[in-house]
Amino acid sequence: MTTTARRMWVRFEPYHDVTYFTPESRAATDALGCKGGWMGYFGMRAAPLGAASAEQVTSAFYNFHPTRVARALPEAWDIASPETFLTTRLTGVDGALRAMLGDDVVDGAAVAEAAQLAVEAARHAPTAGRPLAAANARLPFPDEPHLALWQATTVLRESRGDGHVAALVMAQLGPCDALVLFAADKGLAAEYMKAARGWSDEEWTAAGERLRGRDLLDASGTLTTKAHAMREWIEDHTDLSAEEPWRALGPERTGRLAELLTPLARALGAANGAMATNPMAMSVDLLVEA
């Protein structure tokens, strides 16, 4: 059964996902002097935490190799302050949304209405024990509705993501182990996942061996019955921990927000090349069944 939290996630995630890897965001961080896209990514996403260390960010982001993070932080804070990175990420968001949706949609009544509903939902997103959610929730919502909507979707997705990390910890799946199991479940290529998160061939192989030792992968690298049950438990608990915003908003207004976000998500999914392949296995096709 698809939960309200899952149905809403596949609708608000594409709106959040217009930054970090779009050409507009890359141009904005390049203009700051960032050394490559990963420095821009870690600088923008970690900026709500303040001038966080590589170790803190590795812990909060969970599935990146520590050396991938350490190549960007803390050097990014020498290039620009966290406050500047926060401004820069909104510049990238604004440019990407306008490029993909057009000014008429971005400045239209539907986005403004969606922003009002999403901001209210985001104010109820759990933050206790959720560092990225708490850091983003403390930021003021921009005056422009399309940027306020982005900030709201960011709070909602980071709250959900922090809850997902908690479920992974409870399942005793370390960062690389979780990626190997997820990739096997979703049919994602190991080479792509290793490159996306910075893990070596040896580390990936060792994680697979650990999973086989726990009877979570068979000899061919396929999920076992036990692994399928674990993956279902993780996703169910991720959803369960993300329900509060929608309970607070109520069924009628949640339904209205879903109605407003669906065409935006479809348009952004079609226009955003970063969504074609991604380590979350997020696809706009999910909207058909959600």
Rank of each mutant, 00 (worst) to 15 (best):
T262N: 10
I234A: 03
G37P: 03
R45N: 08
Y15D: 01
A76D: 07
L147H: 10
A76S: 10
A46R: 05
L257H: 12
E55H: 07
A167H: 06
N63K: 09
S59P: 00
L149R: 04
M170P: 14
D236E: 14
A265R: 03
A109P: 13
G37Y: 04
D78N: 13
A31G: 05
R214F: 07
T4G: 07
R98D: 08
V169E: 15
G40E: 04
I234M: 05
G269I: 02
P14D: 00
N272D: 13
A258R: 11
W204P: 05
G92V: 02
W38G: 04
M100W: 11
P66A: 10
D107R: 08
A171L: 00
D201H: 12
H16W: 11
L249R: 13
A271Q: 13
G92S: 05
R11Y: 07
G95L: 03
A110I: 01
S241I: 01
L139M: 03
W204H: 11
T29Q: 00
F21C: 01
H65S: 14
L156M: 11
E259K: 15
W246M: 04
G50Q: 11
T88K: 01
R45W: 05
D104L: 02
E202D: 12
D143V: 14
N278M: 04
E55A: 15
D185Y: 14
D103R: 13
